[in-house]
């Protein structure tokens, strides 16, 4: 019975099927909102489904220089890692599908796997654009990841637990962590790190299309590219879900006017709000250069996170 529920969890809800549907839908909304922000109509919100569907039905081509198992496996591993994180974050109740003692450490590790797979794919693609994109991605990873970890650490220190369910339960009693003035800088730093993690402007440097075509993914096409898109879309919702659980109280059930609102709705609203926030940020800025991005991460963003950490440790 436990095996069956695990398989259902990883393949249907909240795993592959649910995460893919919501991820594709959110990126569709993201594209539509972007269109309106740029004073154009924009694609219909199901455009991402059509795009991925079309890519899946195309011929699977691997360039001669990229004939290696790594090139083929990279998108699959990335998607797998992103879906696994989906099982570890609270979606429909404070309790995630899989629980372990220190699940935040596992989540931080798993969230890096799509990025690492992208670099491996870029390096193994045999294209100078892929190699340049992967090189930039490595550099950028060392920028945002430190900020991201410190920001998570602040929440962990505040609550005194490395378990995500404990953090969510703590917030149910004590109020959202983002409303605590000591944690506000950390939440902002985490948002900045998310912008870099999701490769959105101003931190879309590893896939800057006018400079290096599509960075690591330049040589990918057809079904492999579709899986990359899917992995990216799932990663988007996973990162938003993690932020919601850490700082926005996670999924909570409400009763409004006698009607029971299930916590899954709360999860969807919170993640959509975070995705729309990153959409807004990416539409009001120009892309930075890699050196400027690193400087920003290692000075301003790190400073914010560390200030927050010190505040949490010092101020009772």
């Amino acid at each position: 019975m436990e095996v069956l529920s695990f398989i259902l969890g990883s393949l249907v809800f909240p795993g592959l099927l649910f995460a893919s549907l919501i991820g594709l839908l959110y990126i569709g909304i993201d594209r539509k909102v972007t269109g309106h922000m740029q004073n154009r109509i924009g694609p219909p919100i199901w455009q991402e489904f059509l795009d991925v569907g079309k890519l899946l039905s195309k011929e699977d081509i691997t360039p001669g220089a990229a004939q290696s198992p790594i090139f083929t496996a990279a998108p699959l591993v990335a998607l797998g890692a992103a879906v696994t994180v989906m099982l570890l974050i609270p979606v429909s109740s404070p309790q995630p599908t899989l629980t372990m003692v220190a699940d935040l450490i596992v989540i931080i590790y798993l969230l890096n796997i799509p990025a690492i797979c992208m670099m491996l794919g870029g390096y193994s693609s045999g294209s100078p654009f892929g190699a340049t994109g992967a090189g930039r991605h490595v550099a950028q990873l060392f920028g945002y990841e430190f900020v991201f970890i410190i920001a998570i650490l602040v929440a962990v220190v505040r609550v005194g637990s490395l378990g995500l369910p404990t953090i969510v339960n703590y917030q149910a009693q004590q109020g959202w962590l983002i409303l605590d003035w000591r944690l506000l800088p950390a939440a902002i730093a985490a948002l900045v790190a998310i912008q870099g993690k999701l490769l959105r402007v101003p931190f879309d440097i590893p896939e800057a299309e006018s400079e290096i075509v599509h960075g690591s993914l330049t040589e990918y096409s057809g079904p492999k590219l579709a899986i990359w898109r899917l992995a990216y879309d799932v990663e988007t919702i996973v990162v938003a879900g993690l932020f919601a659980a850490l700082f926005l109280g996670g999924p909570t059930a409400y009763v409004i006017g006698g009607v029971q609102i299930p916590s899954i709705v709360d999860f969807l609203i919170k993640t959509l709000a975070i995705v729309l926030l990153t959409t807004t940020l990416r539409n009001i800025m120009a892309r930075l250069r890699i050196d400027q991005a690193l400087k920003f991460y290692w000075t301003s963003a790190t400073l914010l996170a560390i200030i927050s950490l010190v505040l949490v440790l010092v101020v009772p």
Binding site: Q38, R40, V201, D204, S210, M285, A286
Partner: peptide, 9 residues
């Protein structure tokens, strides 16, 4: 320079 909003405007 990656500023697509300004491009469209």
């Amino acid at each position: 320079i990656g500023f697509n909003t300004l491009f469209m405007l």
